[in-house]
Simulated scan of single mutants.
Amino acid sequence: MKPQAVLIVLLLSGLAALPGLAQSKFLTRAGTISFFSATPIEDIEARNEQVGAAVDVQSGQVAFTVPMKGFQFPRSLMQEHFNENYMESEKYPRATFSGNLINWVPDALLAAGPQTVQVEGDLTIHGVTKHVRVPGTLEKQGNRLLVKSKFVVAPADYNIEIPALVRNQIAKSVDVTVNLACNPAP
């Protein structure tokens, strides 16, 4: 079993309740990640609504997995180039993140509204793993946990090669937005 799958299973096993919170583990299989990159020729954007994620607000562990072929583009040719030429989705079918909330106090979710957090861990894209630290928010809304984050990824950091013909016409970084609405783990 892959390390990310093991982490998700561990997060979902043994439900420990938080004082004041009835549930500490949350998950989704329909989270959303989108990205946007402005370019002189044409903006590049895509959306993926097949993100699997697990969050344990007691321990602060966070894990998610993103099927690369789940990204939908406005034009099918963009999607084809993304999967075949840039991401090599047959060879690297998933991007993953495994990490922890930094300086997290679980009782913060008892307060109303979004709680600002920092998440630190390993982001793997295109077979390359980088240790990252990104901002985000957590918010308890009814029995759901809302998770949001915005950060920047540089394709070059993950050995994603841009052909020389278009290299100067494509942005050096991509804005990534994460939106997860997680339900209590069963």
Rank of each mutant, 00 (worst) to 15 (best):
2 K>A: 01
14 G>M: 04
15 L>K: 12
15 L>Y: 06
17 A>V: 15
18 L>V: 13
20 G>E: 03
20 G>S: 06
28 T>S: 15
30 A>F: 07
31 G>E: 11
36 F>I: 03
36 F>H: 11
39 T>F: 00
43 D>F: 01
44 I>T: 14
44 I>F: 02
45 E>A: 10
45 E>Y: 13
45 E>H: 14
48 N>W: 12
53 A>P: 09
56 D>H: 08
57 V>M: 04
57 V>R: 08
59 S>W: 04
64 F>P: 05
65 T>R: 09
66 V>G: 04
67 P>S: 04
67 P>L: 02
67 P>W: 02
67 P>Q: 01
68 M>P: 01
68 M>A: 01
69 K>C: 01
69 K>T: 13
72 Q>W: 00
72 Q>R: 14
72 Q>F: 07
73 F>K: 10
79 Q>S: 10
81 H>C: 10
83 N>E: 06
83 N>D: 13
83 N>Q: 08
84 E>N: 12
84 E>V: 08
85 N>Y: 07
86 Y>C: 13
87 M>H: 08
89 S>R: 03
89 S>E: 09
90 E>D: 15
91 K>M: 07
91 K>F: 09
91 K>A: 10
92 Y>T: 07
95 A>W: 03
101 L>P: 03
103 N>P: 11
104 W>R: 08
106 P>F: 04
106 P>V: 06
107 D>I: 13
110 L>G: 10
114 P>S: 10
115 Q>D: 02
115 Q>L: 07
117 V>D: 02
119 V>E: 06
119 V>R: 05
121 G>N: 12
122 D>I: 01
122 D>W: 04
126 H>R: 02
127 G>W: 03
128 V>H: 00
129 T>N: 00
131 H>K: 13
132 V>G: 09
132 V>W: 09
132 V>T: 07
133 R>D: 08
137 T>N: 11
138 L>C: 02
138 L>G: 04
145 L>T: 03
145 L>H: 03
145 L>N: 00
146 L>F: 02
148 K>E: 04
150 K>P: 00
150 K>L: 00
151 F>S: 04
152 V>M: 09
153 V>S: 03
157 D>T: 00
157 D>K: 00
160 I>H: 02
162 I>F: 07
164 A>W: 07
167 R>I: 10
167 R>L: 13
172 K>V: 00
173 S>Q: 14
176 V>E: 05
178 V>I: 05
178 V>M: 05
178 V>F: 02
178 V>W: 01
181 A>W: 05
182 C>L: 14
183 N>Q: 15
186 P>L: 12
